[in-house]
Design a protein around this nucleic acid. Structure first.
Lengths: 228, 228
DNA sequence: AATCTGCATGTTGTCGACAATCCATAAGGT
DNA sequence: ACCTTATGGATTGTCGACAACATGCAGATT
């Protein structure tokens, strides 16, 4: 799979072509726009406009949009148009509750199979550093690394893929909400106990910790949410 | 939305056409072929051949295949070809373990939110009837109806969509394994206690029952599975 | 004034042709 | 004999043009 988050556009002298299909490049660009909040929920996506804008044909655009549809970021209404999928409060709740189920499953699986949870220590340290430096962006990145690592340790490709797809939308939500700055040190302090419970193979405690951690962690700004 | 499951081809005088896009029709046809086992894992899917076979252009074929890719039934290797995704033993395990997580989540949510679990009684009765008549097909259908109803009662659209996508592959697995006939009465007898625990709001018992029920329920014929 | 009808416009849906890429195979050199 | 290098075939990737469809507006009709 592609190493997520990297949009490699070589800037060195000879710019040979990237072997990645156009539809993927297009999908990455549009996805970035959505995830950064530049394209807001409900915004229409017109194929011809995008095609002209990116100087490609409509075919890759269509296929790219279909990719984003599978990611749950775009929805299509036949013969009417495509648009960035509106985010309802209900959907936000569903996304976070499903994430909780995924992470609980990962925790259970890690303990049941006796996997080594110590790789989680790295992201924990990163979070501490970020919290000390009051660097919200770095802390967010380390937090995601922590959770992604958790899923990876569970050694379950399907779970990892599902989690990834879900986390895309969490990115979108996080970009849309511009709330008060969270307490960085507190977030950083939340994670090490989870690791401790995992290495101690304390199932009940680990499940409870991850469950509490993922639940209600993020609250969404009601203004950016559709009503229905 | 269109009323699901109906392929309305009106035979009366004035026939208003079906408005379903070609790509969807194509996707349905290919999906049926895969799910029925007529197209086996690893089998190549050549766009031009399918296009000629179905007398449509390649564009709808490509988009249909992409839909199936999102369903996890097909995989693409760039500039090389597309094929029915091979089923590894590992994937089968992952599919069923993820299904367990989904259904456990549904059970927890149903009890937490005090939802009415009595609609599950209908499929239970259907299963009893099917078991009494020794009708495997009817029992399989009722079993799926039970689990789908369980997810629907949880009132979680995203969970339902994820479960559906997963269940597609379970269909495929079930079509591929031609094992000994299972004990129909026993399967039918497994479900009512789950309903009882749900209406009694007995969380621990309900979770344990659904967990045991989904786990190890299906064993796959090794011969139909890829080695990796 | 209200309603229906027909048309114009914008968007997606579909098509056929061409280009880019990969793989296997065979030719050529050492 | 072995390795390297063309070359041909097969498949997907991309393109531009045309068709189908839905919607909104203007005009006619009652």
């Amino acid at each position: 799979m592609t190493p997520s988050g990297m949009t490699a556009v070589p800037s060195d002298g000879m710019g040979p072509i990237e072997n990645v299909p156009l539809r993927v490049q297009v999908a990455d660009r549009i996805r970035t726009a959505i995830l950064s909040g530049r394209l807001k929920p409900g915004e229409p996506l017109v194929e011809t406009a995008l095609a002209e804008q990116m100087t490609v044909s409509r075919a890759p655009i269509r296929e790219a949009i279909q990719i984003l549809e599978n990611d749950g970021l775009v929805e299509t209404i036949a013969y009417k148009g495509k648009r960035v999928k509106p985010l309802t409060a209900r959907e936000v709740e569903e996304i976070y509750s499903l994430r909780e189920a995924y992470e609980v499953m990962a925790v259970r699986r890690i303990i049941e199979r006796g996997a080594d949870a110590s790789p989680l220590r790295g992201p924990c340290e990163d979070m501490n550093r970020a919290a000390a430096a009051d660097d919200l962006e770095a802390l967010t990145a380390a937090d995601e690394a922590f959770h992604r690592t958790l899923i990876q340790i569970a050694d379950h490709d399907l779970l990892l893929a599902s989690w990834r797809s879900l986390y895309l939308r969490i990115h979108q939500i996080m970009a849309l909400r511009m709330r008060r700055r969270p307490e960085l040190p507190q977030i950083a302090a939340n994670h090490p106990p989870i690791v401790d419970a995992l290495v101690a193979r304390d199932m009940d405690r680990a499940v409870k910790l991850i469950s509490d951690h993922t639940r209600n962690l993020e609250e969404i700004d009601p203004q950016t949410i559709a009503d229905t």
